[in-house]
Design a binder for these strands. Structure first.
Length: 265
DNA sequence: ATGGTTGCATGGCAA
């Protein structure tokens, strides 16, 4: 293909409620493959027809009632779709598919982990760390000499400039040392952080702004929770990486915005 | 230090 494929990841926080925003995204930017997290719908109620009408003819989805749920919406064919169970948990947080050139694409929704960063006091934090450990083991077993992509809401902002205040967030779930060290250890298994290929670690990058803030845009207390990583064989195909900040200001938005890469596959 | 908002489902939990 002459123009780069646009691969996008977006925690949509209810796919049914956000259908108009998915349409708006496709009218704002070219989107060839869209990986969603937090679809919050069981498969029987997944809005497949609406999404096909937007041009996403190839769909892979795994959801459950009310919580979690991941999907891959694609304008190019998907093969060998797999639903995964991570660390024995039965929640729907990992789905994968193969693109026509053999690239394997993995879409993850890592648990948010609750409010208290203590595994004794907070079972959700324990769940998050166990999931991260299982994801790391899974990653170790992958062949990094093959073309592989992982995307998703990892719910961890690993670097100091991935949050609005490193100091103030050191004890806040998503930026505690056990999480950031864990995600960096996972990345060390051959993964290229696409957005940091274009923006140095000294510059701020965010993909999420809380619903709870007064004025998300003015206060700008963001975090980079969403990521797109590639193995080395895909590095030379990486043409651009973008974050659609404006989507946080759309009507009835998700608290996450779409992030994307252009790949000359 | 606390509370702030949103979605699902319709009470309270998860984020």
């Amino acid at each position: 293909m002459s123009n780069p494929i646009q691969l996008v990841s977006w925690n949509i926080n209810s796919v049914r409620l956000r259908l108009p925003l998915i349409k708006k995204l496709t009218e704002t930017r070219r989107v060839d493959v869209l990986c969603l997290q937090e679809t919050k719908v069981m498969d029987e109620l997944f809005p497949a027809d609406d999404l096909r009408a937007m041009g996403f003819e190839h769909l892979a989805f795994a959801g459950q009632k009310s919580y979690n749920g991941v999907a891959i919406l694609s304008k190019i064919p998907l093969k060998n779709i797999e639903n995964w169970q991570v660390a024995g948990f039965d929640d729907k947080r990992h789905i994968s598919a193969e693109l026509p050139n053999g690239t394997r694409l993995h879409n993850f929704y890592v648990p948010a982990g609750g409010d208290i960063p203590d595994i004794e006091l907070n079972p959700k934090f324990d769940h998050k760390l166990k999931f991260l450990a299982a994801m790391t083991d899974w990653s170790k077993a992958l062949d990094a000499t093959q073309k592989q992509i992982i995307v998703g809401d990892f719910n961890i902002a690993p670097h100091e400039q991935d949050v609005w205040s490193h100091k103030q967030l050191l004890k806040v779930v998503s930026h505690t040392p056990i999480e950031t060290d864990g995600l960096k250890a996972l990345q060390a298994h051959g993964w290229i952080d696409t957005h940091r290929e274009f923006t140095p670690l000294t510059e701020k990058l965010y993909s999420w702004w809380s619903y709870r803030g007064q004025d998300w845009d003015a206060s700008d207390r963001g975090r980079r929770l969403d990521h797109i990583w590639l193995t080395a064989p895909l590095k030379d195909t990486l043409k651009e990486a973008w974050i659609l900040r404006e989507a946080r200001g759309w009507e009835q938005p998700s608290d996450h915005v779409p992030i994307g890469v252009g790949l000359g596959l």
